[in-house]
Every structure is written in structure tokens, then in C-alpha cells.
Computed example of a mutant assay.
Amino acid sequence: MTAFLIRRTLGAIAVMWAVATLVFFMLRLVPGDPIAAMLADAAGPEAEAALRAKLGLDQPLVVQYGLWMWNALQGDLGASIYGSNQPVRTILAEALPRTMSLALLSFLVAVVIAVPAGIISATRRNTPADAAVSLGAFLGLSMPDFWLAILLIIVFAANLQWLPAIGYVPLSESFWGWLEHLILPSIAVGTAFSAIIARMIRSSLLEVLKADYMRTAKAKGLKERAMLWGHAMPNAMIPVVTVVGIAFALLISGAVVVENVFAIKGLGRVLIGGIQARDYPVVQGAILVISAFFVFSNLLVDMLYGALDPRIRYD
């Protein structure tokens, strides 16, 4: 296991370096010049050259890349080239807790809905309960998250006035304020993911329930609950864990549309705003953080494989 973790850690570092390198050079290929966008049309070549030199954009690309990579290794992701030159670390530090909070609560909503729904659908195949779960999963996958978000705002914020419609309150200020501002967005985001996970649990569990060892356990007189939780679920969870890991990483990357609907300035909104403004340091820093979460999620999934199935070894 130790050798496996070392190999995967080195591989993760290589992946993040490759992602950072690709993003750095591909951003420079996007049409448009941030200097021209920042300056007024009346600005002369002298002002443009001075600003380009101030931001370090007058140097060759290789030099810019080397400086940025060296600073990134020391934890310095640069500063935004717009506004007050705010450090990228500060921008990400403000946005990341909001996205993490939304992702964790959305993930919790998805799991709470999906696990019982998937088990009921698999153990009661071709029954009204199975049909109801399948219909709910179909609706969950079909509904756009922004449409569900607007519907939740109309019902619970505008009409019933139970929950706030927009905004975000940090957890450090108020737990209940933090929670009530995230209930509606987490339901809007988690519903679609719960449908995906429920369908995967149903499919995987049905395959396991048909296995010979399950019939043998039933012939021995093992209780249905013990068969389900002691034999079926651990073996059915391998593909489910893979999907859950990918889903969580996608949640971390930011539910951009839902964040905009609820006016939550999370990582997704920061990334989209940076791309639209050609703010190179912000985009590079945001993608680096997102790629780190994807790599960490994949590593965690690989480690869970061995915990769920003792037959899996990393030799």
C-alpha cells in the first residue's frame, strides 16, 4: 500500500503540473488581449506598454511560465490583473469555503436520497416502488438544476418565506445562517446527483443479487437483512464509489449556474469571471485548485476499493 500511495502521489503531481502547463499556454491562445480590455480606447501605445511591463506580460512566454511556476511552487499564485491587484490566494480563499459548503451539503442530500431509493428499487424490482424510484430518477436527471433552483426560490423563499432566496453567510458568523442559505442550493444541486447515484446503486445491486454466492447464502437460511448489508452491499459499492468520487469532484469544480441563481460567489463563478475577463492568474489558480480536488478524489476512491473488497491489493 505504501508503494502504491507513493506512485499515486508522484502521478498526481505530474498530472497537476501537466494541467497547469496546458492551461497557462492555452489561455494565451485565446483571442483577445487583457491589456486592451483594461485600457480605454483613447489610451496610447505608451500607456499600453507601461501596463504590460508592470504586469510582466511583456516578457517571453517561456519566461512568464517559468516565473509563474516557480512562484506557484512557493504558494504564490500571483495577483489578479484587474481591480486592486488582489492576490489570487485571497480570491480563492474567499470562494473555496462557499463552494466546499455547497458541495458537501449537496453531496449529503444526494446520498440521503439515493442510497435508500437505490436499495428499495433493487430489492423490490418490477414493483410500484421500483417504478416510482425510476420515475423520480428520470425526473431528477431531466430537470435542469437552475430551473429547480428558481422553483425552490418561488415556493420556499418568495411564497412561504421560510428560507432566504440569495446570499451566503460564513459558517464562522452563524451556523444557522450558513445552513439556511445553503438548504435550497444544495437541494437544487444534489437532486440530479442523487438520481445518478440511485440508478447506479440499483444496477450494481441487481447484478450482485443474481450471483451464485447470494443464492447460496439464501439457501443456508441467512436473513435477508444480513444478506443485503453483509454480502450484497459491500460488493455492489465498487462501481458506486467510482461514480460518487467523480460526482463529488464535479461538485467541487462549482455548480456555476446554481451559484449565480443564489448569488453565491464560489469557485465556479470566480473561474467563469476570470475566463471572461482574460484574468490569467485567477484562471490558472482556480483550475489548479480544481484539478487538485479531482486528483485527490481519485486517490481516495482507489483507497476505498481495498477497504470495501479485501480481495483488491495494490501490489
Rank of each mutant, 00 (worst) to 15 (best):
A18L: 15
A18M: 15
V19I: 15
A20Y: 15
F24G: 01
M26W: 05
L27Q: 03
R28N: 01
V30P: 01
P31S: 00
P31A: 03
P34T: 01
I35N: 05
A36E: 10
A36K: 14
A36S: 14
A37C: 03
A37R: 03
A37N: 03
D41H: 12
A42C: 09
G44L: 10
G44Q: 13
E48G: 14
E48A: 15
A49L: 13
A50Q: 15
A50K: 14
A50V: 13
L51P: 09
A53L: 13
K54R: 15
L55A: 04
G56C: 03
G56I: 04
L57D: 01
L57W: 07
D58C: 05
L61K: 06
L61M: 11
Q64H: 01
Y65I: 04
W68Q: 01
M69F: 15
M69E: 13
W70D: 07
A72V: 04
A72W: 04
L73R: 07
Q74A: 09
G75D: 02
D76C: 00
I81T: 04
I81N: 02
Y82C: 00
S84I: 00
S84Y: 04
S84M: 05
N85T: 10
Q86K: 09
Q86F: 04
P87M: 05
V88K: 02
R89E: 00
L92K: 00
L92E: 00
A93D: 05
A95E: 02
L96I: 06
L96N: 03
R98T: 04
R98L: 07
R98I: 09
R98F: 08
T99F: 07
M100G: 12
A103T: 11
L104T: 15
L105H: 10
F107W: 13
F107A: 11
V109W: 06
I113G: 10
I113L: 15
A114T: 02
A114R: 07
A114D: 05
A114N: 06
V115F: 07
P116Q: 09
I120A: 14
S121Q: 10
S121R: 12
S121M: 08
T123Y: 09
T123W: 12
T123V: 14
R124F: 08
R125G: 04
P128H: 11
A129Y: 14
D130C: 10
A131C: 10
V133G: 11
G136V: 14
G136P: 12
F138P: 06
F138C: 11
L139Q: 12
L139D: 10
